[in-house]
């Protein structure tokens, strides 16, 4: 391996880490919902892609700049999050762990089908920001659109952490996730916290969906299943219920994925990510930071 190969390797890892913020956001979404409800919402990544699709509707009406499209995706994500709670959780008996798993798988398929039928399954172009900017750092070139995705992802995570640890709503959310009965006795409305968690994670998911579209340059219904799998892998590697874990795991999975794609090609890369998941499940099932912030 000569110097040029090395530079290319590092370049691909860096690109992967930048894109990994998308995985981190998806992982946070899965983890937050698991935190408050102790349930997996399998439709989360599909709803995120759905929100990105919905944001394209505004482009069919007016010629809006990319920023507006991103904001639309966030808003649509919030609405979809609320709908997912209403359809997939509110009227489903929570005592049965499989019931909500089934209802969210159903929602995943439903969202996918809606996308396929409204777009005839043809991929649609997604606007990117700063796609013509390239920042050279020494021998490396950082793509402007990926840098934007990375910065947006970091801003999102910062806002989310501030929300969780500096506001009353965040206090209530953590209280519900740690001790649901006691939080009721403190006068916290569990249903309200649950709905808000779904809406907020929906907004985050919508932004992640838009970031995916912007980084790849297009949206396809084929994205939702791989993103669901990646989001779940990130959640498990980061540790169910751990937000810092989801962030780190998202960046690591993003970087490694691109690394293996560079070394072994696109058809093999997921194999190695699966092996990584396998290694974690066997040797460190609690995730990177082991102590999950879930139920005591």
């Amino acid at each position: 391996m000569d110097l040029l190969d090395l530079i290319d390797t590092i370049q691909s890892i860096a690109d992967g880490v930048l894109f990994g913020t998308t995985y981190a956001l998806l992982g946070i979404g899965f983890t937050l919902i698991f935190g408050v409800m102790h349930k997996i919402n399998l439709s989360f990544a599909a709803a995120s892609i759905g929100a990105a699709y919905a944001s394209l509707l505004i482009l069919s009406a007016v010629k809006a700049p990319a920023v507006v499209v991103f904001l639309m995706a966030a808003a649509a994500g919030g609405v979809l999050g609320g709908l997912v709670y209403l359809v997939g959780f509110k009227f489903i008996p929570l005592a049965n762990p499989l019931a909500t798993l089934m209802s969210t798988v159903g929602l995943l398929l439903l969202i996918d089908e809606i996308i396929v039928h409204t777009t005839a399954g043809v991929p649609l172009n997604y606007p990117a920001l700063f796609s013509d900017v390239i920042v050279p750092i020494g021998p490396f070139n950082l793509r402007g659109d990926l840098m934007f995705v990375f910065v947006l992802g970091c801003v999102c995570m910062t806002v989310l952490l501030l929300l969780l640890y500096r506001t009353k709503l965040g206090l209530a959310t953590r209280a519900v996730s740690q001790q649901p009965t006691a939080s009721q006795l403190c006068g916290i409305g569990i249903m309200r916290v649950n709905i808000l968690t779904f809406v907020i994670t929906g907004v985050v998911g919508g932004i992640a969906g838009a970031m995916t579209g912007a980084a790849i340059g297009m949206l396809s219904p084929l994205l939702s299943l791989p993103l669901t799998v990646k989001g779940l892998i990130v959640t498990v590697i980061g540790g169910l219920g751990s937000i810092p874990g989801a962030i780190v795991a998202g960046l690591v999975v993003g970087g490694l994925e691109n690394f293996f794609q560079f070394l072994r090609g696109v058809s093999e890369r997921d194999l190695y990510i699966m092996l990584l998941l396998f290694a974690f499940l066997v040797f460190r099932p609690g995730g990177i930071f082991t102590v999950a912030a879930g139920r005591d």
Binding site: K168, L171, A172, R174, A175, Q178, Q179, T181, A182, S183, L185, C186, G187, I188, A293, D296
Partner: peptide
């Protein structure tokens, strides 16, 4: 207000935050 059996404090929150939660 009920002080529940087995106390049920919020284990991963500070004492201060537990009190804040009580005043929710």
């Amino acid at each position: 207000a009920l002080v529940p059996e087995n106390r049920l404090v919020f284990p991963h929150m500070s004492v201060y935050e537990n009190l804040l939660a009580g005043a929710y």
